[in-house]
């Protein structure tokens, strides 16, 4: 798991943590749990929402940690300016990752789905010990906690390119081609607040 402290973020959101899980086996259950948690009543509902208060992101659509961090930066900026488009700062990450303006599309594509096997879990919040957060993450996700450097073997570039409408080859050299596609993805996420 990676932990970050951003001194320029407001105190209530100055830290964030993200972890990559591979071989995830409970994606379908997790998705149902999230849907149910959102409608549960009373104290029980509060507790359940606390337990799953993370962003769950389909890891095959994330190109790099900078890609993810750009989406997190945008989400915290919106939260601090009171301009969140979705209900929470965590769901805002999904919205920021998706190139179109449709919220349910964003959740369907970038959120957890029954077929998810690689998952990135994000928590944005006030400073708290990384070990506690990691334990909370492992509580809800059954899978192998993997280093974020594994991401480069997981990214599904064909899908990323499809969602970002990068049809043509950007360069003859395959490495440069991917680099340029990555740059388009990064810029698209960073300028999410600008309607293209």
């Amino acid at each position: 798991m990676q932990s970050y402290d951003y001194p320029h973020f407001p105190d209530y959101a100055s830290n964030f943590h993200f972890a990559l899980f591979t071989n995830v086996s409970n994606a379908a259950d997790l998705r149902n749990r999230l849907v149910q948690a959102s409608t549960m009543q009373g104290e029980e509902g509060e507790a359940e929402r606390q337990a799953v208060d993370f962003a769950f992101i389909e890891a095959t659509l994330i190109c790099s940690s900078l890609h993810l961090r750009s989406a997190i930066l945008n989400s915290v900026l919106s939260q601090s300016q009171g301009t969140l488009r979705t209900k929470t700062v965590h769901s805002e990450i999904l919205w920021n990752l998706n190139p179109t303006n449709n919220i349910s599309d964003a959740i369907r594509r970038y959120g957890v789905s029954p077929s998810t096997t690689s998952l990135i879990v994000v928590r944005i919040g006030p400073p708290s010990p990384p070990s506690t957060i990691q334990a909370q993450m492992q509580e809800v996700v059954s899978g192998t906690l993997s280093p974020i450097s594994e991401l480069k073997n997981i990214t599904d570039w064909a899908k990323v390119r499809k969602y970002h409408k990068i049809g043509q080859k950007m360069d003859k050299d395959p490495i440069k081609d991917t680099q340029k596609a990555h740059e388009i993805v990064l810029s698209t996420v960073a300028m999410k607040s600008v309607v293209v």
Binding site: Q2, S3, P147, I148
Partner: peptide, 16 residues
Amino acid sequence: LHPPAISGSTSDEGYE
């Protein structure tokens, strides 16, 4: 814009 990680493995790219 993005300070380095305070804990966790070193990251996947030189963009850090």
